[in-house]
């Protein structure tokens, strides 16, 4: 090999570099595409929407009233109807408090027992008061509340983040 050739890139090194570069581009493209592909659904923001609950006149004064409504939810490629239940409480017919009927302990459905004036959870004897705060039992926090609004005498609650 002549001395001038020594400085030049030889065939083997050129191929090595080319293979690493081309392979890196191809591998990188697929690798980088795979990340959003895999984690995409996890990062999707929860749907945020106002759900129509019913006429405010149906809410009894000073006692939690149960409203049930069906909403359509889309999870992945499956759209399904889901029934959500909301307890609505009003003290004065002006301000409304909407509470989830899902126990904050382990997700069972709580029921309002008018005779006792409390919510009871059938699973582990969680008890909540009229406004949803924990009276006794294992629940770690009060019943979740929804944001509410009233439009033309119809009550809406906000679902999702």
């Amino acid at each position: 090999m002549s001395p001038s050739n020594a400085d030049q890139v030889n065939r083997r090194d050129f191929m090595k570099t080319a293979i690493i570069a081309v392979g890196g581009v191809i591998g990188g493209t697929i690798g980088i595409s795979a990340i959003p592909y895999i984690i995409g659904p996890a990062l999707k923001k929860d749907q945020e929407n106002w759900i129509r609950i019913g006429a405010v006149t149906k809410v009894e004064l000073d006692t939690p009233t149960l409203f049930k409504t069906n909403i359509e939810t889309q999870t992945g490629w499956i759209s399904s109807e889901e029934e959500i239940s909301v307890y609505v409480l009003t003290e004065n017919g002006q301000e409304y408090t909407a509470m989830s009927n899902v126990c904050t302990h382990l997700g069972c459905r709580v029921r309002w027992i008018p005779e006792q004036g409390k919510f009871f959870c059938p699973c582990h004897n969680g008890v909540f008061s009229k406004d949803g705060s924990v009276v006794s039992g294992p629940p770690p926090r009060p019943l979740d509340r929804f944001e509410t609004k009233v439009e033309d005498g119809v009550l809406f609650v906000k679902r999702g983040a």
Binding site: S33, A34, P36, Y37, G40, P41, G76, W77, I78
Partner: peptide, 27 residues
Amino acid sequence: IYYVPDPTHAYDSVVYITTQLPMGWFI
């Protein structure tokens, strides 16, 4: 990871991959 081999969901899961997932069309 997303495809479901069942007549009820196969086509929908493929459409989901192609149109809803980031880079799903590419994969």
